Computed example of a mutant assay.
Amino acid sequence: MYHTETINNHTFRLRYLPGGIFDMGNERRGESPIHTVELSPFYIGEYLVTQALWKAVMGADNNPSRFIGDIRPIERVSWIDIVEGNQDGDDQPAFLQKLNEWTKNSRPRGYVYRLPTEAEWEYAARASEPYEYAGSDQLKEVGWFRENSHGETKAVGLKRPNGFLLYDMSGNVREWCMDKYSNSFYQECYDQGIVKDPLCDDKKARYRVRRGGSWLSYPQYCRVSYRLDWRPSRRLSDIGFRLVLAPVQR
């Protein structure tokens, strides 16, 4: 089941995920301990946000990407550009603010667009499959990374999807998540038992989570459990994002 939107003649869609219980994390440093998470249902973009979608929302002349192409992922956008807006005194509204204004009459009632939580992202990437990467144990089948990207992003959706029919979750560009990066959050969740819809957040967080590997990444950094921190103000050509549509209260 999908939810489809059209903005300025550009159509995109998100896939419905039923939620459920899964084991999050890995025994590697920074990804442990493995802990059990319960997620409510949500929608998530089948593709990374493209430059065409970014321009449809933000304006035809607004494209900060290094690698230009309407069906390539948007990159060189910061977490602040996406979530808060008005970075560096530029008086630019946030992408999510404008997107939610555009879709206020077409979104399901009580739902808003936002970034995925870290738990939602990993659940979507794993797709209840036992693979190291999102959809395969062979990264070249599902992702663009250092060894096959030729040093650039690629059009979205060219590689094989994972079990949830989501594309590019192990490569192309890394993906911003909503969460504050915390070395202790996994342990806190583990200590609580099964945690429902976890979110580690702080309005003044110095670092936010990014997931998924990129065209610049070595294979070990494209795994579904790999997590990395980055300053929310930074704009890099290997970081983009994917949309989630979920109830307001979450």
Rank of each mutant, 00 (worst) to 15 (best):
P64I: 06
R66C: 07
F67S: 03
I68A: 08
I68D: 10
G69R: 10
I71D: 11
I71L: 14
I71Y: 15
I74S: 00
E75F: 06
R76F: 07
V77I: 15
V77Y: 02
S78L: 13
W79S: 02
D81S: 06
D81N: 13
V83M: 04
E84W: 10
G85M: 07
N86R: 13
N86P: 02
D88C: 02
D88V: 01
D91Q: 09
Q92F: 03
P93E: 05
P93N: 10
P93R: 04
F95G: 01
F95P: 05
F95Y: 06
F95A: 04
L96T: 03
L96C: 04
Q97W: 04
K98V: 12
K98R: 14
L99T: 05
N100A: 09
E101Q: 09
E101N: 09
W102V: 08
T103R: 08
T103W: 02
K104Y: 12
K104R: 12
R107K: 11
P108E: 12
P108M: 14
R109I: 15
G110M: 10
Y111G: 00
V112E: 10
V112H: 14
Y113P: 06
R114V: 01
P116W: 00
P116I: 08
T117R: 01
E118G: 09
E118C: 13
E118N: 12
A119D: 04
E122R: 07
Y123M: 03
A124G: 08
A124F: 03
A124R: 02
A125N: 12
A125T: 15
A127D: 00
S128L: 09
E129N: 06
E129H: 00
E129M: 13
P130Y: 04
P130A: 06
Y131T: 13
Y133Q: 03
G135I: 03
G135K: 03
G135V: 04
S136P: 15
S136N: 08
D137I: 05
D137P: 09
D137T: 13
Q138Y: 13
K140I: 13
K140H: 15
E141K: 08
E141F: 08
E141S: 12
E141C: 09
V142L: 02
F145H: 09
R146A: 14
R146G: 09
N148A: 00
H150N: 12
G151D: 07
E152T: 11
T153V: 14
T153N: 04
K154E: 02
K154Y: 04
A155V: 14
L158G: 08
